[in-house]
Design a binder for these strands. Sequence first.
DNA 1: TAAAAATAAATTGTGCACAATTAAACATTA
DNA 2: TAATGTTTAATTGTGCACAATTTATTTTTA
Lengths: 150, 150
Amino acid sequence: MLTTPTPTDPNDLLKLENQLCFPFYAVSRQLTKTYQPHLQALGLTYPQYLVFLLLWEHEQLTVKELGERLLLDSGTLTPLLKRMEQKQWLSRRRDPRDERSVVIGLLPAGRALQAQARDIPAQMLARVGLTLDELTTLRTQLTHIIKQLT
Amino acid sequence: MLTTPTPTDPNDLLKLENQLCFPFYAVSRQLTKTYQPHLQALGLTYPQYLVFLLLWEHEQLTVKELGERLLLDSGTLTPLLKRMEQKQWLSRRRDPRDERSVVIGLLPAGRALQAQARDIPAQMLARVGLTLDELTTLRTQLTHIIKQLT
DNA sequence: TAAAAATAAATTGTGCACAATTAAACATTA
DNA sequence: TAATGTTTAATTGTGCACAATTTATTTTTA
């Protein structure tokens, strides 16, 4: 045998179908598009929805804390939060005890959106067609990859 | 027993940690960041790299075909391809047999990049720390989700 | 405590992503 | 074949993402 056992083209790894990362990139964008109609009804974007998920749970968080949890920096968050502030959904003020920090606080109009968002997760789950088990397993794997890369 | 068997807060589904989609969103962005140093060395962005993966394999594709494979529309592709054209990596010309279509063709400078990109997939694979088996299984699942959502 | 280092946001500039609209070419059909 | 409808890109406008730099504040250290 002079040929290799599996005569693989060395360029096979550079084909789109063999990429690991493209499926992640594609799924992420398709998921965001699937959220679109639900979120549009509330007048918010997907990243803004993520900010609300945290604020509905915590009421108050600094920009730094939001950034750590969402893996976003101030270059992304500052303009995004300013847009949300303009809609009276949240407040932005310097922490008096540390003027470097900006504290983001949930306002009544923002709190009121939670009720309207309540059914979104279940509707999304139905749409992707995964069982709760599959979803949990997948989430564990993804969380592990995130930890690996961060 | 007056309480439910598993007394779950109805708002639990609206917590970030219980989201399906955030991990996808986060993994996708972290992966792109991990590509960054490799791609920067070649002077290209991640979406531009994806275009090259297709052109290295097919030499010529219409904007429509690129869009179908990458799930991107002309609003994204047209300016991206114009930037790649400016770097002499590819050509853009109308199809003489159907003037509606624009054919993207690989140019020598673009073809030459393939050699420099050859090691990127293996380095990325090592970086994410998945076995080839895990990767294959994951890719199958993701491809299924994409089909489900598209 | 004065100088140096570190931290937190904001700013600047580039490049996607995508919805919505427009324009041109082609196909269909009345 | 003229009118209608469809297809393909390009355009316009908004909102992320992120690298790199800047500014203000706080902490550390000499």
